[in-house]
């Protein structure tokens, strides 16, 4: 039987309770470290540290928020140890970007679409194509940093909206706006780079 974090007295965080959060922690670590083994290690160290320090867990923050806090330390420890230029996506180092008012490009002043979504041909088929995923990744990486962070924490890591707000310091209202802008941008990017872009077929390759 699983007890909720609140019902546990301090220093009784069970391994099972901690392990429940492993998938989210792993996805979080993987997005930053870009390496399965390193991510695995960071999560392992996090869970161990959490288990050892469970007396310090006061149940004020949600358990997952507390664990993510520990994980962030483990990840920055890693960067410090490896002592090399960090070119990866660091959730903590980005704050502002130019994403304000970007949405206005998509709509005219009367609120109607400016351009706007055309019909996509067979999106399901795209999911099966390797080339599509390369484009998807490019589009996702092209989002302004803060927007990318919000979108990834929600859709890739799988945090709840409130957790994303806590992690990023966004208000509830700004969260909805940011997610919406991220979707508008991704949509446009995928449309331009994939759905409206004639794909090379075998015939073209041989032409």
């Amino acid at each position: 039987m699983l007890l909720s974090a609140e019902m546990n007295t301090p220093n009784q965080l069970s391994e099972a309770l901690l392990a429940e959060h492993r998938p989210v922690l792993f996805r979080y670590a993987l997005l930053q470290l870009k390496n399965t083994e390193l991510a695995d290690d960071a999560v392992q160290e996090t869970l161990l540290a959490a288990w050892q320090a469970s007396a310090n867990y006061e149940g004020k923050a949600s358990l997952r928020t507390w664990l993510i806090g520990i994980l962030k330390h483990k990840i920055s420890d890693h960067w410090r140890r490896s002592n090399r230029e960090v070119v990866t996506f660091d959730f903590d180092e980005i704050n502002n970007d130019d994403s304000d008012a970007a949405e206005d490009d998509y709509f005219m002043s009367n609120g109607h679409w400016n351009g706007g979504p055309s019909t996509w041909n067979d999106p399901e088929a795209a999911l099966k194509q390797q080339e599509f995923w390369t484009i998807y990744e490019t589009c996702q990486n092209n989002l302004p940093p803060k927007m990318a962070k919000v979108f990834m924490l929600r859709e890739l890591v799988g945090l709840e909206a409130e957790e994303v707000c806590r992690e990023t310091g966004l208000s509830d209202a700004n969260y909805w706006v940011t997610m919406h802008r991220a979707r508008l941008r991704l949509r446009e990017c995928l449309e331009i780079r994939w759905f409206n872009n004639p794909k090379p077929t075998e015939e073209n390759d041989h032409a």
């Binding site: 996805r27 990744e137 859709e155 449309e191």
Partner: peptide
């Protein structure tokens, strides 16, 4: 398309 993007993001993850 926004539903599709959500699905693609989950699949990507």
């Amino acid at each position: 398309q926004s539903q599709f993007i959500q699905k693609a993001a989950h699949r990507y993850s």
